[in-house]
Design a protein around this nucleic acid. Structure first.
Lengths: 213, 213
DNA sequence: CGAGTAATTATGCAAGTGTATAATTTCTCC
DNA sequence: GGAGAAATTATACACTTGCATAATTACTCG
């Protein structure tokens, strides 16, 4: 009955890093950044803690890598759906829909966002990632609104477009936040419905009709 | 040169608890809940750590007390301004204004909200406080919208009112979030301006005009 | 002004933290 | 199939954490 040294299998650096990052995101979502301990992450990834040091020079570096992984995934999820759709109005509607349905709207996604916020505000590298992601979102939304308004024969000046983009982004963010914070407070499709109506009311564009082929 | 025992002054339980809570909120905003250590809090409150145990049976209890203190303060700040104003439309406008100006819109307030979120999702007592506060906000907003629409001669059914309240709450929350996350991204009064316009567009009420005496 | 009491400080402890380093195992390549 | 190298495990260390408990101080009240 002697304690035997643990068996293991060698994996590619890529696979191991990804596994460690995913385990990190799980624990950060559950317990916050400080609650995601090196030992806990290693256990979740079914690995011993020394390995983390082998792939990341510090816990800090792993956290940053996990944050960037998460942010990239969120933008992909939001923009992938309607990227190829036809009219700008249809793409705008797809953007709203994608932003207000799972897995974007999700308690875990919100928990991750909140958990990272402190570090985002302090760490320069994470701050830069955050600002870049936010600007990407809003610029893309602003461009979509601009084209959709032109399509509708009601082009708007730059200052006005900026306000509309900020406002639409805010409704979407607010609904995303509330949907993640109180998952049982809204019926199926309710957030999408309210999101469409609100963006429509703010921009004056009709987003309720069926998508054109 | 002997180490002398530290001098101190006795304070009322009320004052000490409040000081400890304020110190806790500072540290939670800066470093998150786990980063707010008992020793750090004691130092910030200019007290030794043993005293915390004297007033709160555990760190957990202090955190909960700090959270409730913060939430109460936020609701007071939001509703105090326009409580006595005349028309429902004026009160609605005051609500928007109060929600979108400092100290409600503030990086620290956002950091606190984010830092507490994890515990809010797990701890039943904190969850209850959160849901109660959210419901209070939204019900109050919904009532305000209902009366304002009646004033304007356009009463709305309950289902519609619910949607309008959710939507308006979302814009306000979203703008609050973005104002706190990116304090330098918006000009003075810009959030209030956009907030008024958006709530106006969603509800169909005019909030841009000057307040009536 | 002096005793009693509650507030406050001081000290200690066991568990958990990130990180460094040594010991071993798995795989590749000849 | 065996040597070399890299991946992985194991162990140790200094430090921080929350909490418990003992020692002291400041204030109250007769």
């Amino acid at each position: 009955m002697t304690d035997e040294r643990r068996k293991f299998k060698r994996e590619s650096a890529e696979a191991r890093k990804e596994a460690l990052i995913l385990a990190t995101l799980e624990l950060v979502a559950e317990n916050g950044v400080r609650g995601a301990t090196v030992r806990g992450i290693a256990e979740r990834a079914d690995v011993t803690q020394g390995l983390i040091r082998h792939y990341f020079s510090s816990k800090e570096e792993l956290i940053i890598a996990a944050y960037e992984h998460h942010m990239n995934q969120m933008t992909d999820l939001t923009f992938a759906p309607g990227a190829a759709a036809g009219s700008a109005r249809a793409r705008l509607r797809a953007f709203v829909d994608g932003s207000l349905t799972p897995p974007v709207v999700d308690p875990r996604a919100l928990a991750l966002w909140a958990s990272f916020l402190n570090k985002v505000q302090n760490d320069p590298q994470m701050k830069e990632t955050h600002q870049r992601t936010y600007a990407y979102f809003r610029d893309r939304l602003e461009a979509l609104i601009a084209v959709a308004l032109e399509e509708a024969g009601r082009p708007a000046p730059a200052a006005r477009l900026r306000q509309l983009a900020i406002a639409c982004n805010a409704v979407i963010d607010g609904l995303w936040l509330e949907g993640g914070a109180l998952p049982d407070a809204f019926g199926a499709g309710e957030l999408v419905e309210i999101g469409r109506q609100s963006v429509a009311a703010i921009t004056g564009l009709d987003l309720t009709q069926e998508a054109e082929t």
